[in-house]
């Protein structure tokens, strides 16, 4: 079996600043990490992996994204592919999904594609389903666990708006994963971090993927960001530091005065 896991480099903290000179998010100096949703689904893929199976981690990013892929290798992935080229800059989810589909088709045979449900920075949750549509394979999103895998059939538990469902799917399929509340990301032991150095981490650019250039990056994108800005600040709140009974009285008085209740 061949499993492909799509991973993204994201800022460690989502409290970022806007560079007011060019209206872009200041992302050069911030420290980054593996998107936690992606780490979760990678760990699920690794749990499923048997000896003869291969797990390939792929990411579109900058040369420094290699750091994230090395972490995937240390966690247990067999091979990593980094897509890095100026042509890919400015991709919306449609162009990102298109690029990922080109990579996956170049890799060739695959059985399960794994994505995080969403990224902590963009938080669109769109790349997974859009990629599945490009690849013309079914998708299951909000996957919390893979309960059974036998032959060409997979059983997954996925969250719904009011609970959960168990879905049976044939492979190939794309699964977009969301960690259950009990999940804590593992830290790879030092031994594995060293061993990862000997695993293949390939870098591909636009020429390696081929195809019309205008399908990639900002040119291939269908939406356009016209402005980024800070939301209006919330009004400064009122703090009540009193004995409980007085505090409650005061709160109700304020809520009534402000017509909240």
């Amino acid at each position: 079996m061949r499993f492909v896991v799509c991973v993204k480099e994201v800022p460690e903290s989502i409290v970022v600043k806007i560079d007011l000179t060019n209206n872009k998010i200041q992302d050069e100096s911030i420290s980054t990490t593996l998107n936690p949703f992606d780490q979760f689904i990678l760990e699920e893929a690794l749990k499923l992996k048997k000896d003869e199976d291969k797990v390939i981690a792929i990411s579109i990013g900058t040369p420094q994204t290699k750091k994230i892929l090395m972490k995937c290798l240390a966690l247990g992935a067999d091979k990593a592919i980094l897509l890095s080229d100026n042509v890919f800059i400015g991709s919306d989810t449609f162009a990102t999904a298109y690029t990922l589909s080109k990579v996956i088709n170049k890799i060739g045979d695959f059985d399960i594609i794994f994505c995080g449900q969403q990224t902590v920075d963009g938080n669109t949750a769109q790349v997974g389903p859009e990629l599945a549509a490009h690849l013309k394979i079914p998708q299951v999103t909000y996957v919390e666990s893979i309960s059974k895998f036998e032959g060409k059939k997979l059983f997954v538990k996925s969250q719904t708006d009011d609970g959960f469902k168990i879905v049976e799917s044939q492979i190939p399929v794309l699964l977009a994963g969301i960690p259950p509340s009990s999940f804590t990301p593992s830290l790879p032991p030092l031994r594995n971090i060293i061993a990862a150095q000997n695993k293949p981490c390939i870098i591909w650019n636009f020429e390696d993927l081929g195809g019309p250039k205008d399908k990639y990056g900002s040119v291939g994108s269908l939406i356009q960001i016209t402005k980024v800005y800070y939301p209006p600040p919330r009004e400064k709140g009122i703090m009540i530091v009193e004995e409980p009974i007085t505090a409650v009285e005061k709160l109700i008085e304020l809520l009534t005065k402000d017509k909240v209740i």
Partner: peptide, 23 residues
């Protein structure tokens, strides 16, 4: 922007090659 909406909208958008803004 419910779980169903966020599953269906991107699938439809990508199938028809349409731009989509989330949430």
């Amino acid at each position: 922007a419910t779980k169903i909406g966020r599953d269906l909208a991107p699938r439809v958008a990508s199938t028809l090659k349409l731009g989509l803004a989330a949430d």
